[in-house]
Nucleic acid binder design. Structure first.
Length: 933
RNA sequence: GCUCGAGUGGUGGAAUUGGUAGACACGUUGGACUUAAAAUCCAAUGGCCAUCGCGGCCGUGCGGGUUCAAGUCCCGCCUCGAGUACCA
């Protein structure tokens, strides 16, 4: 019969399901271990081979930890809200819920076939009201919180109101917009609406008029991480800047903590780096430059700038404001007004994409105003230009053309003066008029700079900050690139906000009204007035008739805290119980793609830190260790059609003809050899195709490309499972290469793994599938082989090197085959080693060996060093007539080798005299290496 | 431009701390078994030279360096990939 994977895999998948083998509960007698996968969006095309890569890795680890005695939480669910289902609904009228349900069933079926050890009783779906109730609930908590910078944590707004009632806003240091000072009396005198407007400036989820990324094509706003190079990440549609009233999350309050937290978690450096860049902390100073009073009716107008190079302030020869800067209108002189207004409207009508592609074009206008450089007292002109962004820093800069390349280019273009204030160590000052570019480096000595002359740049920065603080014209500050996350989407298929409006002000629903369920609508399109689809819903209002919010939450809302819900997924009164959180704590191992670096993985950390501040979760960081599995690219196959004919030429002969390559479906190609019959039947036009063969075969060309339907290179796991079985797929995906590396999918090697499993089967089962096993005592050689494998396979799993782990296992089986070993003593631990990788066949062998319990929780074998070092010779090698060394020699080393080694040792001794010998390495037939130190 | 990562046989990739480079697998070639094929098994497989055999030389993107010893460490380049970008 042989290795009947179909029977075996079906049998054990049913067994695990019927016995709820992987269902876990809190168990204080066992240490916990939480292994998490990034849950998938259930798209219509089902799983492809890239999906399971990370899932297989995490499953191996989860199974390994179970063998090691851990109580393993290994859940799975669905990130069920998303645009494709909504767009499908717009086209067909099918409710996204129906599409999503259908896709989930398909995903589940595919996942089950691979034999994952998920605890499905804990499944969550972000679109399930029982789940999104807690997404809405968390939103309410965010709205009801503010960030107290003095205690450096989020607090309930009641503490803020208490303070306002007692002492106004004096002494409050909060994350958020600046608010005008007010007293306790002022506060009490404000109307409720005025009070709410003030509070809104403090809340961690807040409604405001803000510049958003608007994507007209998608009809929705997008968060910064959903925009790549001025185009929407999804679909690649142009994105424009637009002022809109939107909900935002004040994630900037957590900028510093999000940065510092990276030091305490075990994540790939590259990913930490991406988050650091995204947060973009830069240290510098803010300085106020006063505008020359002549131009502003003798009023005091100060322009605040942010600079990371306060040392170069003596070189500031002009200023530049962003065109949108609020002071522009006030300071523009009447002669310049027309030009300035024209420039502003030109900037405004330019799309974000145009702006980005035309960065090389230098544009700007002089406002007619002058400012006073506070350290030199020089009058310097104030310009506006779109190279200064309103969204970063203060939206205004002091321009130092000598030491900033953008300022330099601007000064050259508009003929503004350039002063050198930093000179490179060892160089002499030179005439900036002769320069090709500015000197931007922070290495050098200050010149032309008054009290900081002669200092290094580094010292000058410190000294200048001290000086401007002393003069009261500025202070040392830290600036972040991180922006608050826009939280509204003009879509249907997302979580409704638990918000209603009264007098135009938003109010939260009572918590006992949650979940606020997504209503049915007739059309999934925006209304004709441009309102979101929810505006189509009938009776979309509270019982009292107040209108409900018509926006929905973005995709990252539901995924930000899903790992917490898995801890206690069926709790109806809480997000999760304190007990569950105290036991499961945090995710010990998180596996997923790095495309979430600036999105989900930052939002989740923010979400978790917020709940930590509220005392709801016990760990500040949600994901202790994270691994990025590489992306699997497609491997396309090509046939070469001779121009103007229906004749195809094999790959290596194609140069002899004028050919045109055509994608062929990879399912009709095996090891790059085309199945000609299938190809002829593929399409009518190929029915009578002729072929020029090489060695009787048609060889296809190949190329690594993105997996896509149009390239006919999408590999879905089902076909492979049908052909080879899940265990082969699992082993092969791991065998493909290092987990973290991107790699093309290539089935050319899958036969090798399949061959191996069949060999394993044949080794222990006869033709009638009776196991060939005996109770004889294992020999030293057999034990050595086994223990070598235990050591290697174990350490490889522990360091996530699954490909080498598979190899080590194969080596052991091959050695045992050579030894004709059929001993139970060897096979039992060996099968446990195999179990995480290929659980179905491992279970089958385990059961055949007479165990009735199932292998999943069997203790993992531990290697014994004693079996590994077999031949240890104590070979005396004396250095300086004193030292003796014990040298461990490989088993296969002959007497002659040892003699030779010894001779070399005597020679080596000559140069080791007077040195301390630390380690001796014997290499057969070669040399003795002696490590001195 | 900046930041990070990677370059090893025909291919995917091993080499955990500097210590026999190329494990393991694919592919290829030859052989066994078979009427034949599939399956399976055995042998060879980095390059060059030598050859009955023993063996020798060169080899981890390029150029230097440190070391008894470098794929691994240091300096300078080249190429590819990823992220990010008038961020002051």
């Amino acid at each position: 019969m042989g290795y009947d994977f179909q029977r075996i895999e079906k049998k054990w998948q049913e067994y695990w399901s019927n016995n709820q083998t992987f269902k876990v509960a809190i168990d204080h007698n066992k240490p916990k271990f939480y292994v998490l996968d990034m849950f998938p969006y259930p798209s219509g095309s089902g799983l492809h081979v890239g999906h399971p890569l990370g899932y297989i890795a995490s499953d191996i680890y989860a199974r390994f930890k179970r063998h090691k005695g851990y109580n393993v939480l290994h859940p799975m669910g669905y990130d069920a809200y998303g645009l494709p289902a909504e767009q499908y609904a717009i086209q067909t009228g099918t409710h996204p819920e129906i599409t999503t349900e259908k896709n989930i069933l398909r995903y589940r079926e595919q996942l089950d076939k691979i034999g994952f050890s998920f605890d499905w009783s804990r499944e969550v779906r972000t679109s399930d009201p029982k789940y999104y109730k807690w997404t809405q609930w968390t939103f309410i908590q965010l709205v009801n919180s503010w960030y107290n910078k003095s205690t450096d944590k989020a607090e309930d707004v009641s503490s803020l109101i208490g303070h306002f009632e007692k002492s106004g806003n004096a002494g409050i240091i909060a994350a958020g917009e600046e608010t005008e000072p007010f007293t306790a009396e002022d506060w009490k005198a404000y109307s409720e609406k005025e009070q709410q407007e003030i509070l809104m400036k403090y809340r961690l989820a807040y409604l405001s008029n803000t510049m958003v990324n608007w994507c007209p094509e998608l009809g929705t706003v997008l968060a910064n991480d959903e925009v790549k190079e001025g185009l929407s990440e999804r679909g690649g549609h142009p994105v424009e800047k637009k002022m809109m009233k939107q909900w935002s999350l004040r994630i900037t309050a957590y900028g510093q903590r999000l940065l510092e937290g990276l030091d305490n978690i075990d994540w790939p450096e590259s990913l930490k780096e991406m988050q650091k860049n995204w947060i973009g902390r830069s240290e510098g100073a803010s300085v106020i430059f006063n505008v020359d009073k002549e131009h502003v009716n003798n009023e005091n107008v100060g322009i605040e700038v942010f600079t990371t190079r306060p040392d170069t302030i003596f070189g500031a020869t002009f200023m530049v404001l962003a065109p949108e800067h609020e002071l522009v209108d006030r300071i523009t002189s009447s002669e310049r007004r027309k030009s300035v207004d024209e420039y502003k409207s030109w900037v405004k009508n330019r799309s974000e994409r145009e702006r980005m592609t035309e960065v090389k074009n230098i544009t700007g206008e002089f406002t007619g105003a002058y400012a006073i450089n506070p350290l030199t007292n020089d009058r310097i002109p104030v310009w506006i230009a779109d190279y200064v962004l309103s969204g970063y820093g203060t939206g205004a800069i002091m321009a130092v053309p000598g030491h900033d390349s953008r300022d330099f280019a601007f000064a050259n273009h508009f003929n503004l003066p350039v002063i050198q204030v930093v000179v490179k160590d060892g160089d002499k000052p030179s005439d900036p008029g002769t320069w090709d570019d500015s000197y931007d480096s922070k290495e050098g000595i200050m010149i032309n700079s008054g009290f900081i002359n002669g200092l290094s740049v580094h010292d000058a920065i410190r000294t200048t900050i001290a000086k401007i603080e002393e003069l009261g014209i500025g202070e040392g500050t830290v600036n972040y690139r991180l922006r608050d996350a826009i939280f509204s989407r003009q879509r249907y298929w997302g979580e409704p906000f638990p918000v209603y409006y009264k007098d135009g002000m938003p109010y939260m629903l009572d918590e006992d009204k949650l979940p606020l369920e997504l209503p049915k609508v007739e059309s999934y399109l925006p209304t004709s007035e441009g309102n979101p689809p929810l505006a189509n819903a009938k009776n979309w209002a509270t019982e009292e008739g107040y209108p409900l919010e018509t926006n929905t939450m973005p995709g990252f809302a539901g995924s930000s805290g899903y790992y917490l819900r898995y801890m206690d997924p069926n709790n109806e009164v809480e997000y999760f119980s304190k007990e569950a959180n105290n036991y499961w704590k945090d995710v010990d191992l998180y596996i997923g793609g790095d495309e979430h670096a600036a999105g989900h993985l930052i939002y989740s950390r923010f979400w978790n830190k917020f709940l930590f501040d509220l005392g709801l979760v016990c760990e500040e960081e949600p994901f202790k260790k994270l691994i990025n599995q590489g992306k699997i690219q497609g491997r396309s196959n090509f046939v070469y059609r001779i121009q103007g004919s229906n004749k195809f030429v094999s790959y290596n002969l194609r140069k002899e003809y004028e050919t045109q390559p055509l994608h062929v479906d990879i399912d009709m190609v095996n090891n790059d050899v085309l199945d000609i019959e299938t190809f002829r039947n593929w399409r009518a036009e190929f029915k009578d195709a002729e072929f020029v063969l090489e060695d009787g075969k048609y060889i296809c060309g190949h190329e690594v490309e993105k997996m896509s339907k149009s390239k006919h290179n999408v590999q879905n796991p089902d076909a492979l499972i049908d052909k080879y079985g899940a265990d082969t797929l699992r082993l092969y995906e791991m065998f493909l290469g290092p987990l973290e590396q991107d790699k093309p999918w290539d089935t050319n090697g899958i036969e090798g793994v399949f061959r191996f499993l069949r060999k394993l089967w044949r080794l222990y089962f006869d033709d009638n599938d009776n196991i060939i096993i005996n109770d004889e005592k294992a020999s030293d050689k057999e034990l050595k082989s086994l223990h070598k494998a235990i050591k290697k396979v174990t350490s490889d799993i522990e360091r996530f090197s699954f490909n080498t782990g598979v190899s080590a296992f194969m080596i052991c089986v091959n050695e045992l085959a050579d030894l004709k070993c059929h001993k139970k003593e060897i096979l039992e631990p060996l099968v446990v080693l195999l179990s995480p990788y290929a659980p179905h066949i491992a279970e089958e062998i385990w059961q055949t060996l007479g165990n009735d319990k199932g292998i999943s929780y069997v203790e993992y074998p531990v290697h014994n060093e004693k079996y590994l070092v077999e031949n240890t010779f104590e070979y005396p090698v004396s250095f300086n007539g004193k030292m003796r060394f014990k040298i461990s020699l490989p088993v296969n080393m002959s007497k002659q080798d040892i003699e030779e080694a010894a001779i070399n040792a005597e020679e080596a001794k000559k140069w080791t005299e007077d040195k301390t010998v630390r380690k001796v390495i014997v290499v057969p037939n070669r040399i003795i290496n002696i490590v001195v130190g």
